[in-house]
Write a protein that binds this DNA or RNA. Structure first.
Lengths: 345, 345
DNA sequence: CTGAAAGCGCTTACAG
DNA sequence: CTGAAAGCGCTTACAG
């Protein structure tokens, strides 16, 4: 841009002080006298001076940067990443920014290109790893990075033991969803979920659902998803399986919105009316649920809290004062898909 | 993590060479002899040594990092950011990574917190700015940053003159969409768009639509969106306006998928059958369109090309060899929403 | 082919 | 309250 980069020495010369005073003044060191600070700031502004963060970081050893890794399925198109993780990513970047940190973002999938040596390379002070549980290789990789001393906080990891993770309050969310269906008059409620999935979140949501059903003395019915399919196809297939089983049902609690979108589509194509014949509730609060037909009732984590909690947990880990906050609060967002049963055939 | 950070001097001592030789060997400098290189690499691996990028960057002046700024509406929830931009973001990060660059990502909306001095602060070598055209303050801010010498490439800017921008091949996409509706038997095709929006893309899509209609000798009909509403509500309102006008129509080309989702919802609630009574085609290729009811036909840019083109254009600008590639190729993705008219009432 | 040395632009003890 | 000086960990002319 310019021939000679403007440095703190140039500012010092213009302000008539030493370079170290410029550094102190700009860092807000209270030891600098007010008139001096004013002169320095004016000179810096005049020269359009900005601190070279590389030099500052080399000196201090801190980068002021957090790495955010979004794990996707190997070979998956970015367009097919669960929008939930994009919302979470946005919230994390915003929270980091509000804490004065930059965010170095990467989408990682293929085993050969996994890269997490951010701290060794002094590119970041710590990592936040989020994304699909399905890519086991990636999670193993980052677990190892963490075991070698890196600072990491997770959302979505299949591993819990000894790791710093944060998740939605899944049990509570599932209870809200189930209670809502019951309150709206549904009784034969099936749950599309996975019991043996590495996705711990699904298991937690299923557990919360079962607990709430038991309180009401209602029988439970689980339909296992086929994890090898794309999420929406999992929903379509689960509905087919549920219908093929011959057991009657008047509502479905689906442990993930993306799967629920497939459920709605399959029910529609089979001419089954939602919410009249079957009520549906999802989980995650993805935006397109609000514009599904009918609009999908869902349980939504507070994304802003999620971002803040992940960032703060990481910063505390880096500072050596670990926190034990783990659960992001959730709320039920009632929409048309669960309005109550009409006349059953 | 460790008391003493492992430096190239430690590697040098272990390998029995000088520090400068370590640097050359790890940089792949061909001047280093093969046996020496092997010894250095072994020592580096043994010590788990990684180059301190801060130090390297301070020395070379290059950061190997690109800043990616996603502009959103002021106060907008990250969950409400158009998923199109998230797909684009993912593609940009992947392309940058394949070119050996990191990506510093930020979501920016509020005027007070706009920040784009990445190059002055030596945090990045250049910027890619994408996002909603609606936040004029933000685009003004980045235009000024660019005028002050920063390297920037844009997608979505309301400004064209003198800027390095990339956009989808909107005219061609609109022609494909319109031709597809015509081929499927629709004739009275309305277009939900904006003629005076700062969104140049909408205008381009409308122009392409009109051109194709004219070729066929068909009359055109534009319904203006109300930009003050959320995208989906714009679609609902436009459908209401269209119907209220009393003019018959059997298809709608909507210049944006998010708006099209609202269109589908409104048509559904009014009991108008899609595609039997009205065919609908959108633009952008957002994922939830595929799971709308009925699944939405759309024009989709090649996201991977989009990411690569943005990154390469920026890298060329930085290198001082500007390119004039501007248009990302598009393709039509036919789905149920435009299958052809049934019997009109 | 390898080494000794300078220097990128800061922050921060240490003196005064 | 301010300044002179060291040093963070690299890369890269310059010598040999």
């Amino acid at each position: 841009m310019r021939q000679h980069r403007v440095t703190s020495f140039d500012v010092a010369a213009l302000a008539g002080v030493s370079q170290s005073t410029v550094s102190r003044a700009l860092a807000g060191d209270p030891v600098v006298s007010e008139p001096t600070r004013t002169r320095v700031l004016a000179a810096a502004a005049e020269l359009n001076y900005h601190i070279d963060e590389n030099a500052a970081r080399l000196r201090t050893g801190r980068t002021g940067t957090l790495a955010v890794v979004v794990i996707s399925r190997e070979g998956e198109d970015h367009k097919d990443v669960n929008p939930f993780y994009f919302s979470l990513l946005g919230a994390i970047c915003a929270a980091a920014s509000s804490r004065g940190h930059e965010t170095l973002v990467s989408f990682q999938d293929a085993a050969e290109t996994l890269s997490g040596r951010y701290e060794e390379q002094r590119k970041a002070d710590g990592l936040i790893v989020i994304g699909t549980t399905a890519n086991r290789t990636a999670w193993n990789y980052f677990r190892e990075i963490g075991e070698n001393g890196a600072h990491i906080v997770y959302w979505g990891s299949p591993f819990d033991e000894g790791l710093d993770w944060i998740r939605a309050d899944n049990q509570e969310g599932a209870r809200l969803a189930t209670g809502h269906l019951i309150a709206n008059g549904y009784r034969r409620i099936a749950c599309i979920t996975s019991d043996h999935s590495p996705q711990r979140q699904f298991k937690e949501r299923y557990d919360g659902h079962v607990a709430r059903m038991r309180e009401e003395g209602l029988p439970t019915r689980a339909v296992e998803i086929d994890e090898s399919l794309p999420r929406e196809e999992q929903g379509r297939k689960a509905v087919s399986d549920l219908i093929a089983s011959g057991e009657p049902f008047d509502a479905i609690f689906v442990v993930c919105d993306q799967i629920a979108l497939g459920v709605l589509l399959e029910l529609h194509e089979r001419g089954i009316a939602v919410p009249g014949q079957v009520g549906v509730v999802g989980f995650d609060g993805i935006r397109s649920g609000a514009y599904a037909i009918p609009p999908l009732t869902s349980v939504e984590p507070d994304f802003q809290s999620a971002g803040t909690m992940l960032v703060d947990k990481l910063l505390k880990q880096i500072a050596g004062t670990p926190s034990d906050e783990r659960r992001v609060p959730v709320r039920l967002v009632p929409r048309a898909s669960s309005k109550g049963p009409g006349l059953l055939p």
